[in-house]
Amino acid sequence: MITTDEITEIRWHARGGQGAVTAAKMLAEMSLVKDMFFQAFPEYGPERMGAPIQCFNRLSKHKISTYCGVNYPQIVVVVDHTLLEVVDITTGLPEDGIVLINSHENPSETRKRINLEGRKLYTIDATNISMESLGRFMPNIPMLGALLSITELLSKEEAAGYLKESFEKKFPQKVVDSNITALERAFEEVKGE
């Protein structure tokens, strides 16, 4: 989907400690694989475990020269569905924007529950995937996988290859493998309407 010459702007909603900032940074690194230009930055300030946070990406085929905050994202990623009751995730999101939510529900169920009008909605049960493959609640990698899948920025194989190379430098093989499983499952299990 990221094929236009325009800049694609993404806003991540999460809670401190869920790895959203890391995921945004990894998205930036992955877009380098495609020789794209990118930015990844958090909403600066004190970060507290569990408090609502935001972070942002800009992706483009051309050099990016805007360095301000992202006010009108085309894509919103909600890493923790409990935030839906706390934050207005649609702020600045246009009618044809995309929402990706970590939820065990189908997109139609979620749409009804949160009264979302217009926009394309995707859901992925990142919580369950992370519990099953990593054994703990760390939804960032499956969320990243789902985002890559719907944006078609990287193929499943490219994304897995990148993750392998990047994680093998830092983590034991078991952790690398379980994260790749989580990423690949997200590619397959994301649902949209």
Partner: peptide, 12 residues
């Protein structure tokens, strides 16, 4: 260089 905007943002 601008604090946070540049110092803390991932850039190419």
């Amino acid at each position: 260089m601008d604090g946070f905007i540049i110092s803390h943002a991932v850039d190419r």
